[in-house]
């Protein structure tokens, strides 16, 4: 077990007139995206997809695990065991030694992702020297080698470039290199291809997939694209309103979705749309009712759904629904 997140809970302060309202922290995004007990597991050598709608708490989960929550949010419960150590109870100094070293992080890259005041090569070298003693020449060589295997042509030239001189696709490759340069055991990729050209998306995802497989490390890919899940991931955890409502191997979940939300999500895939007829989505984000949070939008909701559903499941495939339609697993 590489990462075992158990019942992770995060509370978020409602935005309002507070002492820091003059700072540029902006409006707190998505009220009600606090996590209400998120559990999932990442196994070495396997790739887990975290899917769900915008605001379901996917990125918040990653931030909480890495100890990178905004000041307005805080962890209120649960555990996140990374190789047996609870990340949620680690001091910030210890977490600093985990982040970027044992857990690599890939973000949605854009022209604001890299430090604008340092050259690309310097950033790659800095990322190494911050985590271990390394000779400058070796750090530079490793940076260039990794850039090259990330598909960056002329890495030596690119190492001297400033971030604003790179295309978004190259920035994304540099971000991948930054995440991998210290040979982490776990890689978390949060919407790694959002905002890129379709063709570039495929290239980046192929690269990410190959690196994860080649290094036999664990991966979490946060995405809203079910095609990405189907093509690149081994396991999937479907999130809704700050909870994992269904999880299991991708093949099983996609073949026999047990939770109504998963079925609705899968029905949005174009080729299935024709079969499903009309969408089961509708309405705004629910105001977190008692019982099942998906109840207001669920076409199959009954009286029983006013009580909180248990996690129903046998073996690897499980769903949080009273009426989970688990296959004959």
């Amino acid at each position: 077990m590489l990462l075992d997140v158990q019942d992770l809970r995060v509370a978020r302060r409602a935005p309002g007139p507070d002492a820091n309202s003059d700072t540029a922290s902006g409006p707190a995004r998505g009220i009600g995206t606090a996590l209400a007990g998120v559990s999932f597991r990442v196994v070495k050598g396997r790739i887990l997809a975290l899917v769900g709608e915008h605001g379901a708490g996917k990125s918040l989960t990653a931030s909480a695990v890495l100890g990178l929550l905004q000041p307005s949010a805080r962890v209120t419960g649960g555990r996140a065991l990374f190789e047996g150590q609870d990340l949620l109870r680690m001091s910030d100094a210890d977490l600093t030694r985990v982040r970027g070293a044992r857990i690599g992080f890939v973000v949605q890259a854009g022209h604001t992702t890299l430090d604008p005041s340092a050259r690309v090569g310097a950033q790659l070298m800095r990322a190494q020297s911050v985590h271990r003693a390394i000779v400058k020449a070796e750090a530079a060589w490793r940076a260039e080698t990794l850039m090259s295997s990330m598909g960056i042509a002329e890495p030596r030239l690119r190492a001297d470039a400033w971030p604003h001189e790179l295309t978004p696709a190259t920035v994304q490759r540099v971000v991948l290199a930054l995440a991998l340069i210290n040979e982490p055991q776990l890689l978390i990729a949060d919407e790694p291809t959002a905002g890129l050209d379709i063709t570039t998306q495929v290239q980046i995802l192929d690269l990410l997939y190959l690196e994860l497989r080649r290094r036999r490390i664990g991966g979490i890919i946060i995405t809203r694209d079910l095609g990405v899940v189907a093509q690149y991931c081994d396991d999937v955890a479907v999130m809704f309103a700050g909870q994992v409502v269904e999880q299991g191997p991708v093949s099983q979940v996609f073949a026999r979705p047990a939770h109504p939300f998963t079925r609705a999500l899968l029905a949005t895939v174009p080729e299935r749309l024709a079969i499903a007829g009309n969408l089961a989505f509708g309405g705004a984000l629910p105001p977190a009712p008692d019982g099942c949070p998906y109840r207001p939008r669920c076409p199959e909701a009954t009286e029983r759904c006013t009580t909180a559903p248990p996690l129903v499941g046998a073996g690897v495939h499980a769903a949080r629904c009273h009426f989970a339609r688990l296959g004959a697993a």
């Binding site: 890495l66 600093t96 982040r99 973000v107 604001t112 890299l114």
Partner: peptide, 15 residues
């Protein structure tokens, strides 16, 4: 509050 600062933190940069 910039994206690159958040990413620097995610890389485990020291204080």
């Amino acid at each position: 509050d910039t994206a690159h600062f958040a990413y620097a933190r995610a890389q485990g940069m020291s204080r």
